[in-house]
């Protein structure tokens, strides 16, 4: 399902305009982004957890030049599906 259909579906179900849904999705991105930047995970019951993970800095070889590079640390957002969702998907 692409973004447009999703927004249509949501606006129908919530009985609000598409713009409002757009704002809410934008706000959700911002909120989860802020939480994750502080290494707080967001859990949605029976769906899963959005878990930020810190990757440490490391030394890597530049594939083209063969020079050593110090790759800086970073935070990545991972999603861990809940047990119930996993079960449902497996069936």
């Amino acid at each position: 399902m692409d973004n447009k259909t999703l927004i249509d579906n949501l606006s129908r179900r919530l009985d609000v305009s598409r713009d409002t849904v757009g704002i809410l999705i934008e706000g959700l991105t911002q909120t989860i982004g802020e939480c994750a930047a502080g290494l707080d995970s967001v859990s949605v019951p029976s769906f899963g957890t959005f878990e930020p993970k810190k990757r440490l800095e490391r030394v890597a070889l530049h594939p083209a030049s063969g020079r050593r590079l110090l790759v800086p640390p970073k935070i990545v957002l991972t999603f861990k599906p809940s047990a119930s969702l996993k079960q449902k998907i497996r069936k």
């Binding site: 982004g33 899963g48 959005f50 020079r67 590079l69 935070i75 998907i89 497996r90």
Partner: peptide
């Protein structure tokens, strides 16, 4: 064999999550 759920964060969200470390760049040693 089975299916599993994968979430790939969009660029906007990924960069927002990485905001504390945004200032860093890979440095040659």
């Amino acid at each position: 064999g089975h299916d599993k759920v994968i979430f790939v964060a969009a660029k906007e969200l990924a960069s927002r999550v990485n905001l504390p470390f945004e200032a860093f760049e890979a440095v040659e040693i």
